[in-house]
């Protein structure tokens, strides 16, 4: 059968395509936590913008610079920290799904990949913390 004949022999059928509701992410816990994971990038971005502003302020010299210490700023920073931790933990856990490699022709278990990611995160945090505290003294 030629393409034209095949097309013309098809009976046009009217279908109904339901629209995706705006609240689709409230249908299931899985969808909701996915949205939370994606949303956590927003407060992190805001905090980093604030950090850029502080660097620009500190660039004027030590005289007259004072670090922000108001209660709202501390609360904002703690909330951002919680979001950052959630984002980091979910991101590193997903590394076990994404990274796939073999050692001695055997696939490395995803649990080991995730553990190595968390280990690297811990080491990096300790090094950065030590550098910041060292420079602060």
């Amino acid at each position: 059968m030629s393409a034209e004949t095949e097309t013309s022999s098809r009976v046009a059928t009217r279908t109904y395509k339901p629209a995706m509701p705006a609240g689709w992410w409230l249908r299931k816990g899985h969808y909701f936590w996915y949205m939370v994971r994606e949303f956590t990038a927003l407060p992190l971005a805001l905090w980093l913008l604030w950090l850029l502003y502080e660097i620009q302020r500190a660039g004027r010299g030590p005289s007259g610079y004072y670090p922000p210490s108001s209660t709202p700023f501390v609360v904002f920073s703690v909330i951002c920290l919680l979001f950052a931790l959630y984002h980091s933990i979910t991101f590193l856990r997903l590394a076990g799904v994404i990274l796939h490699f073999k050692v001695m022709d055997k696939p490395v278990p995803s649990g080991l990949v995730v553990a190595s990611q968390f280990g690297a995160w811990l080491v990096a945090s300790i090094v950065i913390g030590a550098v910041l505290i060292g420079f602060g003294r």
Binding site: K28, H30, Y31, Y34, E38, L94, V97, I98
Partner: peptide
């Protein structure tokens, strides 16, 4: 894909499409 992951949850044959 933004890695929602629900595709792997509902798969009746244990396939992991998200992976």
């Amino acid at each position: 894909c933004s890695f929602v992951g629900e595709c792997s949850v509902v798969c009746p044959k244990g396939v992991d499409p998200a992976k």
